[in-house]
Write a protein that binds this DNA or RNA. Structure first.
Length: 603
RNA sequence: GCUCCGGUAGCUCAGAGGAUAGAGCAACUGACUUCUAAUCAGUAGGUCGAAGGUUCAAUUCCUUCCCGGAGUGCCA
């Protein structure tokens, strides 16, 4: 973290002590938080930079001690091996924290020269079924990442690309034609995406029936895969015909498609609204699926691609990625053709410096190939394309499969979380049921879910056990929200006594009074906030922010227990602790908001 | 076969060259007439998958191997 006396130490070492070495100041001397069982607030690890000054680590540590023990911000300094543990004066430490909080909007921002315009594509659902827990992980990661990048100063363009056409969309449509009975969301009282999804399940049931019949009728082909037999079934053939009709603009098919997609979009809107997903723009694949073909032609002309003997156009991507087909021999697109097209379209539409895709890790190779192709095509911005791959969400019973209906539905999951939050609230509030119980439960329930999903490193495969995963105690979102609620409660108490926290002039307080470990630990953590957000943003990893918020909330809860605020020994101490609480609250609320999680004032 | 990701406490996960490897859950003990116990304090729990190597220092980097997962389509 950036601590004044350490910055000054660095300056002293470079420009005075070792001036004859003519060093530039790109050296980082990083103050780390001192381990809990050691005496001190921050630690300077001299192993890390002693070589820079051509010193041995122990001698370096001695020099650091000599400088710091005379510094006015430092109370005590002690070297253990090459670790220098520094006890800062309470006044200096709390001032560092206050400085950050006083200008929180700006203090976490990167220098303007380091900020970029970044397009973040996430969610990307199909319109044949409602969203499930896997999509919820994607949405949560995507919106939090977009929010985090924006928070540190990037200009973020959140984008969605809805897969609203193709064979799988036709499957729901065929099933609706056959089994729909003219049902609508209104007539059945069913959310549109769920209604359409039910026909996707019906379709797969029917397809399986036909496949079974086919296999029993023709044992000689029984060992072929479902995909291989698809076009030999009546329903498979009908589905393919419908796709062709759609592509030819058949009015009846297009009308059915439009109607069912609109149902799904209405359903998605509700889900997105509840999660808080917002997009600058939503691309529809029905508008973009023909993009890219012209680029293939250009690439062929420029030599980036070549036509294989069988007629397919391919990109040679070397040993590891192999040869990738970018256009079929019949001249039609494959998936990567569209991806090439939409990547360029996004660039043309927004001119981003960088593009990020939040897409599952099963597509890692696909994106490596896409990026390699973009480079091959000569786009200089192709070096700033990034696939944020995340792991799958599995259930104790195994993998989630939409077509088998073994999924945790997003909307059901939200309801379940919110209901549990409501029960937890009711069990604690006694006879007086809060008026805003539903609003509160929504915030706590959704907060718990998002926090849980963000806690894991994105690339880990999550095992979601509903029984074990839905918790409001321990390392959870509500734990952090609870710390905020506790502070709000203290502020209400202060208000009753006529003390307005907003009116406290923090700058003029004598912070040296707040000298307990609990009080100082809180400020040490606050001092780390800006670099924590920036580090998380650079790694595109929100779990860094999650662990930070847990640490800060934990430090606050310890403080809460040990240092009474409203019944502090003196009025002066009371005001100081209120100010400290306010610093904590500002950072916790800001951190949660960065993760797209809201807070409540009472729990 | 090849490529990528993972293997750390009973469970779910942090740590990515530095001090005696950490949290939460579960187990056990204790703390609510107190600013909210969705909390706090404590006990117990480890051959960091295995073996070599690099280094003053390796759970972290390198090599080989074992185990689990994913990818390896003119699918998306």
């Amino acid at each position: 973290m950036k601590i004044n006396c350490i910055e000054e130490l660095k300056k002293f070492l470079i420009t005075e002590k070792f001036s004859e070495l003519n060093l530039d100041d790109n050296l980082e001397i990083i103050a780390e938080a001192c381990p809990g069982d050691m005496d001190g607030d921050i630690t300077v690890n001299c192993f890390k930079f002693s070589r820079f000054f051509k010193q041995n680590p122990m001698a370096m540590a001695q020099l650091v001690v000599e400088y710091l023990e005379n510094h006015s911000d430092v109370e005590k300094v002690e070297a253990i091996k090459a670790f220098v543990n520094v006890t800062l004066s309470a006044k200096a430490l709390h001032s560092e924290a206050l400085e950050i909080v006083n200008d929180l909007a700006h203090s976490v921002q990167l220098p303007k020269t380091e900020t970029q315009k970044i397009a973040v594509e996430y969610s990307a659902p199909n319109t044949n079924k409602p969203q499930h827990l896997g999509h919820v992980r994607n949405n949560t990661l995507g919106m939090a990442l977009a929010s985090l990048l924006a928070r540190v100063g990037h200009n973020v363009i959140p984008l969605n690309l809805v897969n609203d056409r193709g064979i799988h969309i036709c499957k729901s449509m065929i099933a609706y034609q056959r089994f729909g009975n003219g049902d609508t969301p209104e007539s059945t009282g069913t959310k549109g995406d769920h209604l359409v999804g039910s026909f996707y399940v019906k379709y797969n049931y029917e397809l399986k029936k036909q496949l079974d019949e086919l296999r029993s009728q023709k044992p000689e082909i029984a060992d072929k895969t479902d995909d291989e037999l698809f076009l030999q079934t009546e329903i498979g053939l009908a589905t393919q015909k419908m796709l062709q009709d759609w592509e030819n603009g058949d009015t009846e098919v297009r009308d059915l498609w439009q109607m069912m997609n609109n149902w799904v979009f209405a359903g998605f809107d509700e889900t997105y609204k509840r999660m808080g997903c917002k997009f600058e723009h939503t691309y529809l694949e029905s508008n973009t699926y023909l993009l890219g073909k012209d680029i293939i032609e250009q690439g062929l002309a420029s030599g980036a691609f070549k036509r294989r003997e069988d007629g397919a156009v391919v990109a040679d991507l070397g040993k590891k990625m192999g040869e990738k087909v970018v256009l079929r021999s019949d001249g039609t697109s494959v998936y990567i053709t569209q991806d090439i097209g939409t990547t360029i379209k996004k660039y043309d539409d927004y001119a981003p410096d960088a593009q990020v895709w939040v897409v599952g890790d099963e597509q890692i190779l696909h994106f490596k190939q896409l990026f390699a192709i973009m480079k091959k095509l000569g786009y200089d911005w192709a070096k700033n394309l990034y696939h944020m791959a995340y792991g799958m969400v599995n259930l104790p019973t195994g993998k989630m499969k939409s077509r088998e209906g073994t999924v945790v539905d997003a909307d059901d999951l939200f309801d379940e979380m919110v209901n549990l939050a409501k029960e937890a609230t009711l069990s604690r509030c006694g006879d007086e049921v809060p008026i805003d119980i539903d609003e509160r439960s929504e915030i706590i329930g959704l907060g718990a879910l998002k926090f849980m999903l963000l806690k894991f490193n994105p690339k880990t495969t999550i095992m979601f056990d509903p029984q074990a995963s839905i918790k409001f105690e321990g390392d959870t979102g509500p734990y952090v929200q609870y710390a905020v609620a506790r502070i709000s409660s203290i502020f209400r108490k202060a208000e009753e006594e006529g003390i307005s926290v907003d009116a406290i002039d923090c700058g003029s307080l004598d912070w040296s009074e707040l000298a307990t470990d609990e009080e100082k630990n809180v400020s040490t953590l606050i001092a780390k906030y800006p670099e924590t957000l920036q580090y998380a943003a650079s790694k595109k990893d929100c779990s860094v922010v999650v662990s930070y918020l847990l640490d800060l909330a934990k430090a606050f809860n310890k403080f809460y227990r040990e240092c009474p605020v409203m019944i502090a020994d003196t009025d002066e101490l009371k005001v100081l602790r209120l100010a400290l609480c306010n610093n904590v609250k500002e950072v916790l609320v800001d951190g949660l908001k960065t993760l797209t999680i809201d807070c409540v004032t009472e729990m």
